[in-house]
Design a protein around this nucleic acid. Structure first.
Length: 1060
RNA sequence: GGGCGUGUAGCUCAGUUGGUUAGAGCGCGUCCCUGAUAAGGACGAGGUCCCUGGUUCGACUCCAGGCACGCCCA
């Protein structure tokens, strides 16, 4: 179906009005717009729903989605995790599994409370209580969904399939009821206890933080560092003072003891300036005195000698506190800073609390919930503790107790919500006993497949091995409630509730909502006693850790289904969840089910801004995610993110260039291949099925099918190992093979006018490769895969690429020998091009002959077609294979250390020397695959041919290159015929350029006139037809003419073209 | 202070059990092709594989110690 003498594709006009098999495709496309079209298609056809439901319920692949706080817009970290959470489920779906994907929302906790406080203008907990917990909580509830719509939009636009309609929210009654059940199970195990612990406390939020929440926000701050003296009573030197150092002067009014180290050396010195006697660690003398003359050592003592002494309190607020104001001993005291004597305020320091408790000293707590002094410390009543530092220091100075004053800069934990410094203080809190679960958790963790491995084996395992009991209570309002009711007359008499029904039964009241403002109103009356709920709510990490059970309302519903499908096959989150979600999942699943909660986990790293800093809205050091998506498409962004070490917990510097790169090097070439196929398939009216696949006699076809099979194998292996980066990488090589070898080498097969079998095979092969490639790419780049698939699919095929099975049978099409041969052909071509370049022989100039020589005749046994590829690529008239390189190159040899090293160990060096001295005959023998016996001194070594690496060194003066066992030689001599053809090609090239610069359409016919010298005229005469057909000339005259003057290999030539 | 990780070309990164010539892309330079064209290809320049020591016939790779950076913890 072509015009005579013209390639088929130049005859599009005659097809006008004919309906195409495939929707015509522009080589230029707007990827973002294409993707939006695909999104609409998925919506219209409920493709996601079908992809889940088409797979058997008996073959579930269980995925848990870690719930994000919905208090802000998704950032790159979310997009990255979301992409991982999309690729794996899509892949597993195509592998035949049913993968439910429910989105989850973390609704409770400080982030949302902070927003509500802001909205209601409430400063702290007392204000909330005053306004009413109900009012506050309902405000929280109403704000939870503020960003939900934006999230859904962005997540969807990224191509992530996840069920938003059937989502779970941690504030749902069912979810919260399961939380009660989980808590009650722990309660039954005796894992829940209440204790006084020193906790970081946010005075702004009036709540303690968990041990892994604190310290997420360390800041460098300056604090006072003062040294005060306390007068010792009963020390052998009269009127001696112990020197005490602290960075928290506000804790001094609460001082109840001082502490020394038993084995530390102390000295009593006479201070030259004041004449007073001070006791401090000997090692600290230099910190207080510049010169030895400034003091006089009166006595040296061990810390143990100080034990039991008492001292005069600095303040008189707690003079009557039992057992107080003594010198205690403990190993934690060091001489790294301070004086070697530590002041103890047991309510405000972990060590203080522990040591004073052991010494039976009851603690005193003169701070209220805002961390302001109470009436107990009357002088500072109402002052915020840290603000009292100045006044306290001044007073100590006035009283002569202050010995030294300075400031230190150190790193101090801040509240991450309010950016205020945390105060360590004694808190009544509920704990889950975790420490006795360490071994069991480690054993469970050993069953988990981590990607990357080290996060699980080292980081997480270390964390588990050192797990501390978990503070799960928060003195807040919006959260799941601790389901413990306490006898109002006896705090040791408690009832733990495990379900709403149980509460209804015990209280006789209807339970409609499990939030604080509802359940706090419900009293339990039992045996004449009244129970009221303990006021705390639960840490929201408890809820996310309980998500596997709570999202299914287990055990109230879905009991059998849950138990048959636990643990999950797969979860994915960021490295920061090591201490967060990964941990709480593990704690609860170990305690409840003695199992890990997940079998496979992909841990992603941090996405940084391009400058290596954290992404910051303030600095604007990163592009808006939606901008990137609209500019390059979600596929490009997904590819960029996945093809980076960030999927292996390393950090990634986000670069817009990188996204562009993914587009240009993978997606555009893929699109161009597709566009190429559609263009010519339409021109030829080719239909799928019109030629049978797999019967191609063309080696290019077998080769690309084999490469495709290889791709499939590599991707499958990597995905089954959850190594996403490795899964993406082979696409690069395949796209390269497809575009720059298969299609480039096959173009003429599609263009030729005769519709022979070879052309049919080319279509069938490229069609099949594109379809299968779409399937393999579908989990990674779901949009472009769908778009291409939609246009190529036939009625019998699934309606979406995402409903297809992942290719597997392709393994049968591997032909490794052919892949190797093609690789050699490519090598030959590269060498040929290099030779042309070296010898300044441009590819347009035809050459007579290329010799390809190898002793391994099997290397290129399918010579016919492979030869033709070389002929065309290198523009030579013939390629000649041979097996004797002796005229082209000389042989040389070196040892193959890899094989010899194993056989002969340290003798490889002598053997290498001997090998390099082998004679010509010996070299030929080895090169022909024979073994070799080496005699070195008294020893004899038997070498196999593989033990010696033979190199070919091209002979001087010849156009020869060698690589491995191959030698190629180019015949650079030109005869008249070659010169004429070279000129003709130059002419064609120049005419083509002129056509383009003249603005002609590619299908326009021309009349061509050429004026030049004798040589060019002869060339034109000899290649008249060829030239005309190549440049679409209806006539070609060699005649004097006006026009563009060009240079053809040194011959001036005037070209004139005229549109026909 | 502790745990974990990272350190390879100007930049972003590969490098699978140790093997003597360490790779890719981008960028740069030179050139080619130009009917897949927001392309494509060839060639080239560019490296103390963070440092020091050790093990080994042989170390980017294994071990020890250090340095720098990051994450987490105290």
């Amino acid at each position: 179906m072509s015009l005579p003498g013209l390639p088929a594709k130049f005859a599009p006009s005659i097809f006008r009005g004919v309906s195409f098999m495939f929707k015509p495709v522009s080589s230029k496309t707007d990827f973002a717009a294409m993707e939006e079209g695909v999104l609409a298609f998925w919506t219209e056809h409920s493709t996601f729903k079908k992809s889940v439901e088409n797979r058997p319920a008996t073959s579930e692949f269980v995925f848990y989605d870690g719930p994000p706080f919905a208090t802000g817009l998704p950032h790159y970290g979310h997009l990255l995790a979301g992409t991982i959470k999309d690729i794996v489920p899509r892949y597993q779906t195509m592998r035949g599994h049913r993968v439910e994907r429910r989105f989850g929302w973390d609704c409770h906790g400080l982030p949302i409370e902070a927003l509500a406080q802001e909205a209601l203008g409430l400063a702290g907990a007392p204000a909330i209580v005053e306004a009413g917990v109900g009012v506050f909580n309902e405000q929280c509830r109403s704000m939870v969904t503020t960003y939900v719509e934006e999230w859904e939009k962005t997540v969807t636009r990224m191509g992530r399939w996840v069920d938003f309609k059937n989502d779970y929210k941690t504030m749902d009654k069912d979810f919260m009821e399961t939380i009660w059940w989980v808590f009650s199970e722990l309660w039954k195990q005796g894992r829940i206890y209440k204790a006084h612990r020193i906790m970081p406390y946010s005075w702004k939020l009036n709540t303690p933080l968990s041990n892994f929440e604190a310290g997420r926000n360390y800041q460098d701050v300056q604090d006072p560092a003062i040294t005060v003296r306390v007068k010792l009573i009963g020390f052998e030197i009269k009127d001696a003072y112990a020197l005490v150092w602290t960075t928290t002067p506000w804790t001094l009014p609460s001082n109840l003891a001082i502490c020394a180290g038993a084995d530390i050396d102390y000295v009593a010195v006479s201070d030259a300036e004041s004449g007073e006697v001070y006791v401090l660690a000997e090692a600290r003398l230099s910190a207080y005195y510049k010169k030895e003359a400034e003091y006089d050592v009166l006595k040296k003592i061990k810390g143990a000698d100080l034990a039991g002494l008492t001292y005069e309190p600095l303040f008189d607020y707690f003079n009557d506190n039992p057992n107080s104001f003594r010198v205690l001993l403990d190993g934690f005291v060091s001489t790294e800073d301070g004086t070697g004597i530590v002041h103890m305020a047991p309510a405000y320091g972990e060590d203080d609390y522990r040591i004073c408790r052991a010494a039976d000293i009851p603690l005193v707590e003169p701070l209220d919930e805002d961390c302001k002094f109470t009436a107990q410390v009357s002088d500072y009543e109402g002052q915020f503790c840290k603000d009292a530092d100045k006044a306290i220091i001044k007073r100590l100075k006035d009283e002569g107790s202050l010995i030294h004053q300075s400031t230190i800069q150190h790193s101090y934990p801040f509240c991450e919500r309010t950016d205020t410094p945390l105060i360590y203080r004694a808190i009544d809190a509920w704990y889950v006993r975790v420490e006795d679960l360490r071994e069991e958790m480690l054993a469970n963790n050993a069953q988990v497949h981590w990607m990357p491995e080290y996060v699980g084996e080292k980081r997480f395992a270390n964390w588990l091995a050192d797990a501390k009991d978990w503070n799960i209570s928060r003195n807040r309002f919006w959260g799941s409630c601790i389901p413990v009711w306490v006898n109002i007359d006896d705090s040791n008499d408690t009832v733990c509730i495990s379900s709403a029904a149980e509460l209804e039964e015990l209280s006789g009241q209807k339970v409609t909502d499990l939030h604080k403002h509802f359940v706090d109103e419900i009293l339990i009356k039992k045996d004449g006693k009244t129970y009221r709920r303990t006021p705390e709510v639960l840490d929201c990490w408890f809820e996310s850790g309980a998500m596997p059970y709570a999202q299914q309302h287990y055990p109230f519903e879905n009991k059998a289904h849950f138990e048959a499908n636990f643990p999950a096959h797969f979860i994915a989150e960021g490295l920061d969840q090591t201490r967060g979600w990964f941990y709480t999942l593990m704690v609860l699943s170990t305690a409840l089910f003695k199992k890990p909660a997940f079998k496979n986990v992909v841990v992603n790293g941090l996405v940084l801004a391009e400058d290596g800093l954290k992404m910051s809205k303030r600095l604007k050091n990163y592009p808006d995610p939606l901008h990137v998506v609209h500019e390059y498409g979600a596929d490009a962004l997904r590819l960029y993110l996945i093809n980076s070490p960030v999927v292996k917990a390393e950090s990634l510097r986000f670069s817009e260039e990188g996204v562009k790169h993914a587009l240009r090097h993978l997606l555009i070439p893929l699109w161009n291949s597709y566009s190429f196929f559609v263009t010519y398939a339409n021109i030829d009216q080719w239909k799928p099925g019109s030629s049978k696949l797999g019967e191609s006699s063309n080696l290019l076809d077998s080769w690309i099918e084999s490469s495709l099979a290889n791709l499939c194998q590599e991707v499958t292996a990597a995905m089954d190992n959850y190594d996403l980066q490795r899964a993406v990488r082979p696409f690069v090589a395949f796209i390269e093979d497809l575009t720059n070898w298969y299609i480039r080498r096959s173009r003429r097969r599609f263009w030729k006018s005769e519709d022979d079998g070879d052309k049919q095979q080319a279509y069938a092969t490229l069609y099949h490769v594109l379809i299968e490639l779409c399937k393999i790419a579908a989990p990674f780049t779901p949009f472009i895969a769908e778009e291409i698939y939609q246009n190529l699919r036939t009625d019998g095929m699934p309606e979406s690429v995402h409903l297809c099975d992942f290719p597997t049978a392709a393994g049968a099409k591997r032909d490794v020998a052919l892949e190797t041969q093609m690789r050699i052909v490519m090598d030959v071509v590269v060498m040929g091009r290099q030779l042309r370049k070296d010898r300044d022989a441009k590819v347009r100039q035809p050459l007579r002959r290329l010799d390809v020589v190898s002793r391994d005749s099997g290397l290129l046994n399918q010579v016919g077609e492979l030869k033709q590829i070389i002929v065309e690529e290198l523009n030579v008239r013939e390629v000649v294979f041979g097996d004797d390189e002796s005229e082209l190159a000389t042989l040389s040899a070196k040892a193959n250390f890899k094989t010899l090293g194993h056989k002969f160990g340290k003798q490889v060096q002598v053997i290498n020397q001997a090998v390099q001295k082998l004679s010509g005959n010996e070299l030929h023998a080895v090169a022909s695959g024979k073994g070799l016996t080496l005699k070195i001194g008294a020893e004899t070594f038997e070498l196999a041919s593989e033990d010696v690496i033979v190199d070919r060194i091209p002979k001087e003066g010849l156009a020869v290159l060698s690589q491995g066992a191959l030698v190629v030689a180019l015949d650079l001599e030109l005869d008249d015929d070659l010169i004429r053809e070279g000129l003709a090609r130059e002419l064609i090239n120049n005419v083509q350029t002129l056509r383009k610069t003249s603005g002609l359409d590619v299908t326009d016919r021309i009349h061509l006139k050429v004026s030049s010298d004798e040589a060019v005229r002869e060339a034109v005469a000899a290649f008249d037809d060829y030239i005309q057909s190549e440049v679409l000339a209806l006539s070609l005259e060699t005649i004097d003419t006006e026009g563009e003057t060009v240079d053809l290999n040194g011959h001036a030539c005037v070209i004139n073209i005229e549109k026909a």
